[in-house]
Amino acid sequence: MLLPIAKPGTSRENKTGSWRSQRPETDTKKCVKCGMCELFCPEPCITGVEMGKKPQERSFPKTDYDYCKGCGVCANVCPVKCIKMVPEEK
C-alpha cells in the first residue's frame, strides 16, 4: 500500500541554496549579535546567535548556504546594516 505521507523534516533534502543569485555576507566587525536576521530568516538558514543568551555571550550568525535563497530579508532587517548582499556570479 502506497500512502501519500512523508517523514518529518525531510524537506531538508531540498537544497534550495541552488536558487540563489546573491549571497548575504556578514561584517562581524559591525554585527551586534541582535539576532534579527536569524529571527526573520524565512528558511530558516541563519543560526547560532542564541538570542536566549545575554548579548555578550552570543555568537555571530552563521548562514547555511545549502538553503539560503538569497532573498535579502536578513540584510533588510539588520539594524546596523552589517549584512551585504553580494552577487553570486564571478
Binding site: G9, T10, S11, R12, E13, N14, K15, T16, W19, R20, F40, C41, P42, E43, P44, C45, T47, E50, D64, D66, Y67, K69, G70, C71, G72, V73
Partner: peptide
Amino acid sequence: MAEYEPLFSAGHTACAGCPMPVI
C-alpha cells in the same frame, strides 16, 4: 546545547523572502 531544530524545516520551497514560513 543541542542545535535548534525548528518544527518547520528548511528546504521548503516558498519563494525567496516569503514570510509565511516565518509565521
